[in-house]
């Protein structure tokens, strides 16, 4: 019976555009839209968890509201509930980008299980020293994406669309997004060059914008490659 009800809802949702505009119908459309988004999020999220054999529980929740500028609690590390807000999902154009968004949070959630007091101390570390962990989350998320069959270049596209650019990286509690994108680019270049050589995002305007704005950082990487250096680069 329950299965039939769910099937009926899915059928109704797929017929959404056929509804005429009206108050209650508008609500129906909204519910169906949210259901569909939630289904995509669950599908990609659990795909990443299973493909990477992550044996820590996590759930994914779509929140219709916009994310507040200051979040006192991060549910990913306190409840292992990955909340995706409307203002984030609005930027997502494909499943690879959605995977990028979720994979970062999954890394964070996985790490929050680790260590003393069921991960309390590690979670505190992540909270008061986010800068240190940001790059780790980005890079590890790239690994999870590849293992789950998603294109890691989407991580760059996702960051380019969603991350606001702060003035400095050096003194602030977070890295500049340009630095994060450069680190991810180097990571993909080093570990998964096939994705850059056969880049499916090459004609994507957001990726092209990254190429346009990351010229200096990519020049640093070019020099590193040319001189066979293994030093960590100081991107800006």
């Amino acid at each position: 019976m329950m299965r039939k009800l769910v099937l009926l809802l899915i059928v109704l949702c797929s017929a959404v555009p056929a509804f005429a505009a009206g108050n209650s119908e508008a609500q129906d459309i909204n519910i169906c839209k949210n259901m569909r988004i939630q289904r995509y999020i669950d599908d990609v999220g659990f795909n990443i968890l299973n493909a990477n054999r992550i044996d820590k529980r996590m759930v994914f929740t779509y929140n219709e509201e916009s994310q507040k500028a200051i979040m006192l609690t991060d549910k990913t590390i306190t409840r292992r509930q990955i909340v995706i807000y409307e203002n984030q999902i609005n930027h997502i154009a494909d499943l690879n980008e959605l995977a990028a968004m979720l994979a970062r949070e999954i890394v964070k959630g996985t790490l929050s299980y680790d260590g003393f007091a069921r991960g309390f101390v590690t979670s505190a570390q992540m909270k008061f020293a986010p800068k240190k962990y940001e790059l780790f989350f980005d890079k590890r998320a790239v690994d999870l994406m590849v293992t789950a069959g998603y294109d890691p270049v989407a991580m760059i596209v996702f960051l380019n669309k969603l991350g606001a650019q702060k003035r400095f990286s050096f003194v602030l509690t977070n890295n500049t997004v340009s630095k994060r994108m450069a680190e991810v680019y180097e990571y993909i270049y080093t570990k998964y060059p096939q994705f850059l050589a056969n880049n499916s995002y090459l004609e994507n305007k957001y990726y092209q914008n990254f190429l346009l704005t990351s010229e200096n950082n990519r020049r640093l990487l070019q020099e590193k490659v040319r001189t066979y250096s293994q030093k960590r680069l100081k991107y800006e």
Partner: peptide
Amino acid sequence: YIGAELPQAN
């Protein structure tokens, strides 16, 4: 790496 096979998903 052009035309190289992409890493297999698990």
